[in-house]
Every structure is written in C-alpha cells, then in structure tokens.
Amino acid sequence: MSRTKSPYPYWFILPAAVIFTVLFLVPTLASFWFSLTRWDLFSVEFIGIENYRQFFREPFLIQGLFNTVIYAVTTSAAKTVLGLLLAVLLTSGLWGQGFLRTVMFFPVLVSTIGVGITFTVLMHPTRGIINVALAAIGIHGPGWLTDPTLALYSVVLVDVWKGIGLATVIYIAGLASISPEYYEAARIDGATRTQLFFRVTVPLVKPATVTVVTLSLIGGLRSFDLIWAMTRGGPGFSSDVLASVIYKQYQAGFYGLSTAGNVILFALIAVIILPLTLWFNRKEVEL
C-alpha cells in the first residue's frame, strides 16, 4: 500500500542544485574563511582580520572602494533618467522610432571588450575622433583616459552608452503597460504635459524604475570588463574599482587579500541593494 507519488519529483532540482552548490555556494561560503587568511600559491595561514585592516589602510584600496560606489551610482542614475526620457520620446509616435530603438539597443549585445577598445581609440587624447571633432569647433578636448581625475568618468560615459538601450527598452515595456485611460483622465482634469509626465508617467512606471535601478546598480558595482579593457584601473589607481582590485591582487598572488576584496564587494552590494529593495517595497504598500 503505497501513497501516490508526487508528479513533481525533487530529483528534477538535483542537477542544478549540485552545480550551483558546488560552484557558487561553496566558494561563496569559503570566501569568508579565506578572507581571514594569508593565502598564496603555497600555503594558507589564518591571520584574522588583517586583510580587511590592510584594505582600509591602503589609500589605493580605499579609492577602489569609493570608485566602485561612484561608478555604480553615476551609471545607474544616468541610465535611469536618460532611459526614461528616451523611452518617453521613443513611444511618442516619433518618425523612425522603431529604427532608433533597434540602433540604441544593439550595443547592449556587443562584446564589452570590443566596445572598450573602440572607445579607447576614439578617446585618444590627440588623434582620437572625439577630440579631433571638438578641436574643429574650437574646444581643446581633455585627455579622457589619461587624466586621472577624468578617467573613471570617461569609462562611466562608455558604460552608459553601452547600457542605455537596455534601460530604454525596459522603460518602453513599462510604459506600454500603463493604460492610456490614465492619461485621458488626467488630460480631462486639465493636466499639462509636464504634469502628465511627473504625476502620471513617473509614478506608474515605477516597476520599470525598480528594475532599471536595481539591475544597473548591481551591474555597476560588479563592473570589471569595461574598466579593464579601457584603463586597467589607471592612470595609477585612479580608475580602480573593487572588481579590478580583486583581479590585481589575484594576479599578484595575494589570494587572501583578493578574497577579502570579494567579501567587501559582496557586503557593499548587500548594504546598498537590500535597503533599496525594502524601501521600494514599502512604498508599494503605501500606494
């Protein structure tokens, strides 16, 4: 006398669970331990929080931490604001809007390394097209990637260039889900175009905003390829972020320090994303 078995057996989860546990969860948990060790090719030695202490003592490591936050916040802010404006523009019945959407979205799919190399060339201080074009209208262009105060922001620009298409299509999907009746009702109530945007569009497109902000913040905090392809963290350490610090320490053989960087990045994401998610959800209830 056997009970009827579930038609949805748990072994279906097994392959995924094994792969995810072994190659993701185990290393993540192990990283907490390894971040407390002096770990190189030959040995592992427990040294307590020494790696973390070093992280917050070395100016270039601290700068990496700050740069990570600056990078994530600026790219995310730019993508959110520009993405929404472009989405509104590209859903307004503009001539050729389908083509524009397509063209803007394509960079999302292109190899980050390829984009990075291309823009490194375009941003060449003397011969790069950008500065040549600026010179033609009488502006002396800056050393986009050679000026330590500017390098990080130049990469931010390229990141926004590459990612804005995604933010825009997310917003377009969000706008498409707003019933036109809201706009009609608001217009009957006498709302102006600006009022329509701030009083109807912005609040109702919130789910898309949540997606764009969360995705681009997480992406920005973890960002590595583009920075590595364009500046390798330079000049000096001026455009280093946590992900590039992790790689540099790994290359140098400081595995413990590299892993500590990983844990800090992990903590940074948690500290930024978790309160944000809670805040987004709380606002939802109030609506």
């Binding site: 190659l23 290393p27 990283s31 997480i218 905090l221």
Partner: peptide
Amino acid sequence: MVPPAVVPTIWV
C-alpha cells in the same frame, strides 16, 4: 546579486 568569489572558486 552576489558576485562570484573568484579565488575560492578556482580552489574548488
């Protein structure tokens, strides 16, 4: 959300 812990992953 969580970035992979690279060096421990190599270790695994």
